[in-house]
Computed example of a mutant assay.
Amino acid sequence: MVKLLTEPYLNQVSNWPKTGRHILAQFDENTVVVYQAYRPAIGLFAAEHGYFGGEFSLNRMSWIKPNFLWMMYRSGWGTKSGQEVTLAVRILRSAFDEILASAVYSKFVPEVYGSEKVWRQAVKSSDVRLQWDPDHHPSGAKLERRAIQLGLRGNVLASYAREWIVDIEDISAFVHQQRQGSHLELLTPSETVYPVIDPDLCQRLGLSISQ
């Protein structure tokens, strides 16, 4: 049994925005769950020790995803090579907010940065990258709604790997179990739209107003 709060997918999907850019996540007052998928040497070490170490590299960018189904699409429900171990990493909500506030698009967005020079300077000064990708149905079909992923490096990655973690859970068995069935019986982690209060940050992140 996973520690994550789960619900039938069909109960949740009707409450999720159909279009736009939204951060779907499981969160409470103090924590947020993000997902990563690794090869066993890294994933099993993290789940056992409660932090990222061993073969985990602090010298390359590491991407976190607060949306479970986007992680499932990316990892092929844990079947892709090097992504066999799915981790639910519960981190401090204050840290997640700090990550969002530091995020810089991985590609130049004129309406946010004005010029490529300004964007390049922002990239150099930030340890967090932001990407919006199409979200996906459990079958893998592309949706109109966009899902966020955040790339961490440098000091932010070092803090994430140890200081900001509240709990790491290996949910690979749960993923395998859910992969076997129909989406009509699918259980997924309970997720709702994560609130970002600061209007300037909402604009910078390109967030849509929740319906």
Rank of each mutant, 00 (worst) to 15 (best):
E185N: 12
P138E: 14
I171D: 01
I165P: 04
L130R: 00
R153V: 14
R145S: 12
R153Y: 08
D170P: 02
R179S: 12
G181S: 12
V175E: 03
V175P: 00
G140S: 10
H183C: 03
F174V: 03
D198F: 09
E169F: 07
V193A: 12
L130N: 00
Q131V: 10
Y194L: 15
P199D: 06
D200P: 00
A158V: 02
E169G: 04
L186Q: 06
G151A: 04
S182Y: 05
V193Y: 01
D170Y: 06
P189C: 14
G181E: 08
S182H: 08
L152D: 04
H176W: 08
D133K: 14
P134C: 07
V175M: 07
S139G: 13
I197Y: 07
Y194F: 15
D200W: 13
E169A: 02
S172P: 08
S190Y: 15
H183G: 01
D170L: 07
P134A: 06
E191K: 12
G140N: 07
A158Y: 00
P195G: 15
S190A: 15
R129G: 04
R162Y: 10
A141V: 07
D127K: 03
I171M: 04
I148P: 00
S182Q: 02
P138H: 04
I165R: 03
R162M: 03
V128D: 05
V196N: 07
A147N: 05
E144K: 13
E163R: 08
H137R: 15
Q149E: 10
L152Q: 07
S126T: 04
S126A: 06
V193G: 04
V128F: 05
